[in-house]
């Protein structure tokens, strides 16, 4: 189960090593739960540090509403799959662990998709293909392989919540910038919160187009690094 360590080209290798150090120290400390929780938000932030799951991040951060919906979805799937995968980790044969992870994750995603389609159809429509694509979101599978399959249930749940919140914060920051710059107003679930005079008549449409997403993510990362809020350890 150490393939993450052995593969130099694994994009998570650095994060994995970092996590393993965390795990070692957590075994003795009682504050493991909060540690795992906070870690996902700052030091191992999935979007700004691990740079994982960028495809949905680029695609659905054009409005804050989409970002919130997507974040809630990813937190639900992450939490569900991390808990299940962690609780069956001792009986899961390592030979079929990836198919098992995928089945567990796909089950949660399909449940989520069915429920959203039934009760929040507007969100289902605007998330479109990116909702089922949570199945292949590298954050979810990444946490399953790198964390949940090696750690007890409670810590895995904390890890899921932390990573989920980290993902949500990243999405929120990017979508806030993109929506306000790109439309001149902020609208959450159909309710308009405020309008920037001048900008709303002549919005910078570039920001809600795909290239705008790249620019906003890149600049946000650069600013965070520059400010020293987030850096590789």
């Amino acid at each position: 189960m150490n393939d993450c360590k052995n593969k130099n080209n694994c994009p998570q290798a650095e994060a994995c090593n970092q996590q393993e150090q965390h795990i070692k120290s957590d075994k003795k400390s009682s504050s493991g739960f909060t540690k795992e929780l906070v870690k996902g938000i700052i030091t191992v932030n999935p979007v700004f540090i691990l740079i994982l799951g960028l495809c949905p991040v680029l695609a659905i951060t054009n409005t804050v509403t989409n970002a919130l919906g997507m974040s809630a979805g990813v937190i639900f799937v992450l939490l569900g799959s991390n808990i299940i995968i962690s609780s069956i980790r001792k009986v899961t044969p390592s030979m079929v662990r990836i198919p098992v992870f995928i089945v567990v994750i796909a089950t949660f995603v399909t449940i989520l998709s069915l429920v959203i389609e039934a009760y929040v159809p507007a969100l289902h429509k605007s998330l479109g293909i990116y909702l089922p694509l949570i199945v292949v979101n590298c954050i979810v599978l990444g946490r399953a392989e790198a964390f949940a399959s090696k750690n007890p249930v409670l810590l895995s749940a904390a890890d899921a919540i932390g990573e989920g919140i980290g993902f949500a914060i990243a999405l929120l920051v990017i979508s806030l910038i993109r929506e306000i710059m790109g439309t001149g107003k902020l609208e959450i679930f159909g309710k308009q919160l405020f309008e920037v005079p001048g900008l709303s008549e002549h919005p910078l449409i570039f920001f809600i187009s795909p290239p705008g997403a790249f620019l906003v993510i890149g600049v946000t990362m650069a600013i965070l690094r520059l400010a020293g809020v987030m850096k590789y350890e």
Binding site: T107, I111, L114, E117
Partner: peptide, 16 residues
């Protein structure tokens, strides 16, 4: 997984 999805689908499909 299949059993779970059948149950959820039966609940949500009339609503949809």
């Amino acid at each position: 997984s299949v059993i779970l999805l059948v149950v959820v689908n039966n609940i949500t499909s009339p609503v949809v």
